[in-house]
Computed example of a mutant assay.
Amino acid sequence: MTSFITGLPKVELHLHIEGSLEPELMFALAERNQIAIPFHSPDEVRAAYQFHNLQSFLDIYYQGANVLIHEQDFYDLTWAYLLRCKADNVVHTEIFFDPQTHTERGIAFDIVVKGIHRALEQGRETLGISSQLIMCFLRHLDQDSAFATLSQGLSHKDKIVGVGLDSSEQGNPPEKFNAVFQQALTEGFLTVAHAGEEGPPENITNTLDLLGATRVDHGIRCVEDAALVERLVREQVPLTVCPLSNLKLKVFEDMKDHNIVELLRKGLRVTINSDDPAYFGGYMTDNFQAVADAHPMTQEEIAQFTLNAIQASFICEEEKQRLTRMTLDYLQSEKSSANSKA
């Protein structure tokens, strides 16, 4: 199964690019930009990654982002992530970035977008990895700040496909951002949002009904509302689930307790993603492997996570068909190989 997972084509739909900042790159950028950080070595940074909830992670996440100053920094960050994608056989990725994390520090919106986009274009050309970019609003800030961010994003509509909503869910329900999401929809952006990670299942419902979300990021607490689960199955609403993240943030105590396989078998369109892999201990292959190690699954079930992600992605129908064929061909070849060995 490890060999099967390694070779399986993968599609990532829930990745915060700032959360892929590995300690080694953090130190390199801090030195290059002469930014003081409260750690003396990459190992000391990793030792600090012991989180007890979402907020304890966010505190150190925003601290790490302080080393990102110049366009080249954002390019280097994104390129390092794309190299990990190549190693994990990720063929398509849809990346979140948090403009307010940087504009609040005086970093120009244009600098952030241009650095990320330049790396994504190079990844498309030289690594064969397609991508989309989604700008997220920080939900612990007010809606006026989100509107200002949306306004800045309008001049980059050729680079940004959608808007999202992330940061601390507790105390910041979807309805707080209803107006800015309606404006984003009017401007032609697709919409996604984090919901049902730490917050209650009604956050998932309101994300769909008020924010017009195409996908729900996380969504694992949907099981607390049977009618909602039925709706998610009926409407095939994608959930971008992040197993190692959920474990690291104590949403589940053990991967064996995680409900992602249960949701898959109920017929929900669940996908596997890495969220903030530098902080949560794993990229895409690591997340697939962690789920498979904890839950006995068939190769077809594991491949279904990729097939779900392809259908949930923001790529054109022709490209969805191409990636679907690629995945099914891989599945068939692995089964044929296993049969011949038997």
Rank of each mutant, 00 (worst) to 15 (best):
G219E: 04
Y81H: 13
P277G: 00
L127Q: 06
T205M: 09
D59F: 07
D98L: 11
D144R: 08
V180L: 12
I272L: 14
N89S: 06
V113S: 04
L21H: 07
H92T: 00
L244W: 00
D286N: 06
S168F: 05
M26E: 09
F177G: 01
I302M: 13
L138W: 12
A278M: 02
K341W: 10
N89Q: 12
K176R: 09
A108S: 06
L8W: 05
A193S: 12
Q143G: 10
F280P: 00
M135Q: 09
E44H: 14
L208R: 11
E187A: 10
D88W: 01
I160Y: 05
I315L: 10
R139G: 07
L165P: 01
K176V: 04
L82M: 11
T306Y: 04
D43P: 05
S20C: 08
Q183L: 11
R325L: 12
S3R: 15
G267Y: 13
F27V: 03
Q304K: 14
Q63N: 07
V90H: 00
S313D: 06
L232W: 04
V180N: 12
I134M: 06
G153D: 05
I17T: 01
T240W: 00
Q50C: 13
E317M: 11
K248R: 13
A278Q: 01
A278E: 01
L185A: 12
E301F: 09
S337R: 15
L190M: 07
Q182R: 12
H40W: 13
Y62E: 11
G267P: 10
D142F: 07
A48R: 13
H194G: 02
K114G: 02
S3Y: 14
L244N: 01
R322A: 09
Y62F: 15
T126E: 13
F147Q: 11
L150E: 03
N172Y: 05
P200R: 00
L133V: 10
L328Y: 08
A119Q: 14
E318F: 11
V161Q: 08
N178A: 14
L210N: 12
Y62M: 07
N66I: 14
V270Y: 04
N246C: 03
D209E: 12
F74E: 02
L208V: 14
L25P: 02
S274V: 00
G282F: 00
G19C: 03
L150V: 09
A30N: 06
E187P: 04
F252A: 01
I60G: 02
Q50A: 13
P238Y: 09
N178C: 13
Q182I: 03
H102C: 07
T205R: 11
Y330E: 04
R221N: 02
T327H: 02
V233R: 13
Q72S: 09
D98G: 05
M326C: 11
E235S: 02
E71C: 12
Q63L: 15
N89L: 01
P38Q: 06
Q170A: 13
R32W: 06
S130K: 15
S20A: 11
P9E: 01
Q183F: 04
L133P: 04
I204V: 05
S130V: 08
E175P: 01
D73Y: 04
Q50N: 14
N172C: 11
C85T: 02
L244Y: 00
T271G: 03
L264I: 08
L331V: 04
E235V: 05
N33F: 08
Y61G: 06
H14I: 03
R118E: 15
H14Y: 03
H40N: 12
R84K: 13
F74G: 02
E262I: 15
A226M: 08
